[in-house]
Nucleic acid binder design. Structure first.
Length: 676
RNA sequence: GCCACCUUAGCUCAGCGGUAGAGCAAUGCUUUCGUAAAGCAUAGGUCGCGAGUUCAAAUCUCGCAGGUGGCUCCA
């Protein structure tokens, strides 16, 4: 058997070996550092025998604990494989500790995650975060014992028999799934040695060699989860934790989490006075304060400018409509659970609904007059506010709310025009995202779940729509993932997803293809043959919703909006009251241009004014004193670059104007560097 | 909606059975100052809301509301 190592070198063996033995053959240092392996790409235990015929070549990559620097931090990037093994094993250690403390615990499932691990378990007694210290203390004991993880395998029937005898239905379920997925055996891991091991868990592995490898860990939080993700099924307690090879790495991780918290749009939104939520107004209802409103208004103007270039037309429609409208559209029968209940009129049976979507209103504008094929595409745009009754536990800041404004538009076009219109809207979304410098955007083709009853319309239309979306994305060479069951109820869509500071993924922009609503509303246009034809609709929103986009934008810039977006673009800081008159003249000059400028007329010292303006993340501070007044200049301070020196007021205005018009591509005094 | 936790001054937080505190912000006065916080003073709180236990509740118990993290959901 040939073992090929990542550097290309080959070692030959005439008998089965384990990665541990290969590591030992290479060197004592490697043997000590190794904690697992990839055998032909598969993650495996260090002591897993490598099975192969004599003439076969096996690729082996040893996974080692990281090298650390003087401070005990991992050097370079963390190895995801090493952390995966470590965290998986830590999950077992936590599970053992919990079973020690609560012997009636029934374990279910405990995988590693990107940043840690969790274990789902069934236990009547609620575990609270106050119990974490006890659990952690027991875990530390297990780690101090440096007990080996020892694997053993049983054939499926014997294994199931054993599990039946133990009576844990969740593990039996796991085992049955493994067998269905084609597992030849069922495996257990003993934390300890077989002859004296006292704790074991059904587990596919792999694991680190022993519990002593875990250098640092922390239980993070506890949440409810459900067996097989089914709300009706048994409720688990899910404990989240994280683990690293060293204390310093763990501390760095916790520090990063704390920094992320400081970037959180809810923290910054409060600090910078961008928005507020009032419980008397209602959960999930955003009140945009003047500074947030300033940003939003720039965003809306920016987008409208783009839309006019693409021949969109603005429309305005009310926030409610009769229930019957939504029966026709399909919203009411299909999604009544997630809508605010209907408004019942005093007399008669009439009911109105707060609209969950804007499309029915726009459809009625389309159908309010006869349409010719010559008029198409018709592109109707509106910053349309919609209301959805999201579950209370789902609401978060500005990212998940109950009332929000979509930068919505509906394109009505002929079947021939679909691909072109779709391509154009995808380009628009990409242009928007590029403008704000979003780089970590993933694109998802959201398709229907085969066999589900969540969708309206003719399957043939669905097939056609899904195929068209796919073809356009491929022709544009866009990399995308597929999301089965993520489609809208009326059609498939392309979603643009970004992550927030906590790592949660949110849908922002969306482009949706819809053959069904034109059908349900019997929309028509007259074709060149003088006969009526059915148009196709594209629903699209580049920002998605103003609220969610704003949230992501706040986090993206950590509240430091670029000049063209900043709620307060300039703040004039007079050195003393003697300069107030000149400062006011400067202020007037900026405001004449509709720029968002303020004057700090307080009697603080200049350094105090600077500090406050820095904290408020104002892009440019204009320091003015007698010197500046005499020279007709302003002393410019940039929030990042500090004191940029002085410029004549007119020259500064010109440079700032360029920075605003180019949306930050050219900044004031760029490249000049030296102080004036 | 489910589970755990949280809710004290505008903000960040301390107090955790004996009747409310700090820093920052605010307001006033002094200072008139050249690039990340000058000094002094004043004001500000039914301790989320409602019950209960107790001689006594911000503190203990229960209910409700809102928030945070997950789960589920997400047109």
């Amino acid at each position: 058997m040939q073992i090929q190592l990542p550097d290309g070198s080959i070692k030959s063996y005439d008998r089965p070996v384990t990665p541990a033995q290969v590591a030992a053959d290479i060197g004592a240092g490697l043997a000590k550092a190794a904690i697992g392996a990839r055998i032909n790409g598969e993650l495996a235990d260090l002591n897993r025998p490598i099975e192969a015929g004599t003439d076969q070549t096996v690729e082996l990559k040893l996974i080692t604990r990281p090298r650390t620097d003087k401070t005990g931090r991992t050097r370079g990037d963390h190895d995801p494989d090493a952390l995966y093994l470590l965290r998986h094993s830590t999950a077992h250690i936590m599970a053992e500790a919990i079973c020690d403390l609560w012997p009636e615990t029934k374990l279910a499932y405990g995988p590693p995650l990107e940043n840690g691990f969790y274990y789902d378990l069934y236990l009547e007694t609620p575990i609270s975060s106050e119990d974490f210290a006890r659990i952690e203390a027991r875990m530390k004991e297990i780690i101090a014992e440096a007990r080996p993880f020892t694997r053993y395998d049983l054939p499926p029937d014997q294994g199931l028999e054993k599990l039946e005898a133990e009576g844990n239905k969740y593990k039996i379920d796991n085992a049955q799934r493994a067998i269905e997925a084609g597992s030849a055996t069922l495996s257990w891991y003993i934390t300890g040695l077989p002859e004296k091991g006292h704790w074991e868990d059904l587990c596919m592995g792999p694991h680190v060699p022993d519990t002593g490898v875990v250098g640092a860990f922390k239980l993070m939080n506890i949440a409810a989860s459900h067996w097989r993700g089914d709300v009706e099924s048994d409720r688990f307690q899910r404990l989240y934790g994280t683990a690293f090879f060293t204390e310093a790495d763990l501390e760095d991780h916790l520090e990063k989490l704390e920094q992320a918290r400081q970037r959180d749009h809810r923290v910054i939104g409060q600090r910078l006075g961008l928005f507020t939520i009032d419980e008397q107004v209602g959960q999930g209802l955003i009140l945009w304060k003047p500074r947030g409103g300033a940003v939003r208004s720039v965003l809306e103007k920016f987008l409208q400018e783009q839309l006019f270039k693409l021949n969109y037309e603005m429309v305005y429609t009310p926030h409610i409509g009769k229930v019957d409208l939504y029966k026709t559209s399909g919203h009411y029968p299909y999604y009544s659970d997630s809508q605010f209940p209907p408004i019942q009129m005093r007399d008669g049976d009439e009911q109105y609904l707060l609209r969950p979507m804007n499309c029915p209103h726009h459809i009625k504008i389309y159908s309010s007059e006869p349409r010719s094929y010559r008029d198409l595409p018709v592109r109707l745009a509106e910053f349309g506010t919609v209301y959805r009754f999201e579950q209370s536990g789902e609401l978060t800041g500005m990212t998940r709310v109950r009332g929000f404004t979509q930068d919505d538009a509906h394109i009505f076009c002929t079947p021939d025009q679909v691909k072109n219109e779709f391509r154009q809207t995808v380009d628009l979304v990409r242009f928007v995202f590029n403008t704000f410098g979003f780089e970590d955007v993933s694109i998802r083709l959201s398709l229907r779940e085969p066999g589900s009853k969540k969708y309206v319309g003719d399957p043939a239309n669905w097939d056609r729509a899904e195929l068209e979306l796919r073809e356009v994305l491929e022709s544009m060479e866009i990399h995308f993932t597929e999301g089965l069951g993520e489609a809208a109820f009326y059609g498939p869509k392309t979603d643009f997803m970004v992550r927030d500071v906590i790592g949660r993924s949110w849908q922002l922009g969306t482009v949706q293809l819809d053959y069904n609503l034109p059908e349900r509303f019997a929309l028509e246009y007259i074709g060149p043959d003088s006969k009526p034809h059915r148009p196709v609709m594209i629903h699209r929103a580049p920002f998605g919703s103003m609220e969610r986009f704003m949230a992501i934008l706040i986090e993206h810039y950590a509240g430091a909006f670029p000049l063209w977006l900043a709620p307060e673009q300039f703040r004039i800081l007079p050195i003393s009251e003697k300069a107030h008159e000149y400062a006011t003249r400067v202020l007037d000059e900026l405001r004449k241009r509709d720029w968002r400028a303020t004057l700090d007329a307080g009697n603080d010292r200049i350094s105090a004014k600077v500090k406050v303006a820095q904290d408020d993340k104002v892009p440019y501070m204009l320091v003015v004193g007698p010197r500046d007044e005499q020279a007709g200049q302003v002393s410019i301070r940039d929030r990042y670059r500090g004191d940029l020196g002085a410029l004549p007021l007119e020259a500064f205005i010109q440079q700032a104007d360029t920075e605003i018009l180019t949306r930050g591509k050219n900044t004031v005094l760029e490249g000049i560097g030296s102080k004036a």
